[in-house]
Simulated assay, not measured.
Amino acid sequence: MTTSRFNLQDLKRRFFWRISRVPTATLVVLGAVAFVSAIAAAWFAREGTVSGIFATIDIRQQNPPVWLQVPAASKMYLLVPTFVLVSAALAAIKISPQPQKWSRAVVVAIVLALTIRYVLWRSLATLNLSDPLNGIFSLGLFFLEMLMVLTTSIQLYLMLRVKDRRQEADRMAVAVAEGNFAPSVDIFIPTYNEPAFILRRTVIGCQALDYA
């Protein structure tokens, strides 16, 4: 009995030790997958609370606010904000053919505004939650699309941090040509199971480089 108890404690200790070594991101993803799977299972099982929530959302999807409805011939005024924003973006590009900080900020802000408008329409007026099967496919496609939107938004944010270093590069190029400045260079040597003598000769060759 004592041996079995010690073995059980040892197994528990090893189990928790292995869990502690799992990256946090992996645990978060696994937890999210487990949570979504539980919700989907409850929906397919027609559990009252879950089914009621999705039924309420589906009713709201079928009756979105007027500002989220798809523009029709009789509602062309819904396109006015889009036309205004696109015109402003084209005007900024026309005024500043060479990207500047202000023009880049204007264009990025307009694109983000249109993106937010699209995300609101996509999330509040297009999902098909009439039954679990259609709902799973509709939500799956929606979240994949939102992932793409997120990556695009990150790229737009990075565009705001772009710096024009052409003048600095020209100045440094003159300094390099005159021998007053020698920039440092990083050399990466990718290896995969090569023999040591090959790696040694490669490192020696890199150390002997002279780009002057």
Rank of each mutant, 00 (worst) to 15 (best):
G48D: 13
Q207S: 10
I204P: 01
A208W: 07
T152N: 13
I187M: 05
S130P: 03
L90W: 04
T82L: 07
Q69D: 13
Y77K: 14
A175Y: 11
V66C: 03
V174F: 11
P64M: 05
S130V: 02
Q207F: 13
I110F: 02
I204D: 14
V80C: 04
N7W: 09
S74M: 09
T151V: 14
Q100E: 12
R122Y: 15
V84F: 03
T82A: 14
N7A: 13
V86C: 03
D164T: 02
S153T: 06
L127P: 08
A109Y: 05
L141K: 11
T3N: 09
L68I: 03
A113N: 06
M76P: 12
L129I: 04
Q100A: 12
V107E: 01
Y192T: 08
L120F: 14
V66Q: 06
R13W: 13
V203I: 04
L147P: 10
W43Y: 00
W67P: 07
A182K: 15
L112C: 11
L78E: 00
S130E: 03
A92N: 00
L112Y: 08
L112D: 09
E168C: 06
L158A: 15
Q69P: 11
V86S: 00
L78W: 03
L158E: 15
G52S: 09
F142R: 03
L124V: 15
Q207V: 10
R166K: 13
D210A: 15
R5N: 10
L156F: 08
V185K: 14
V80R: 14
G52A: 08
A173V: 02
A169E: 09
V80E: 10
W102S: 11
P64E: 01
T126K: 06
S153W: 02
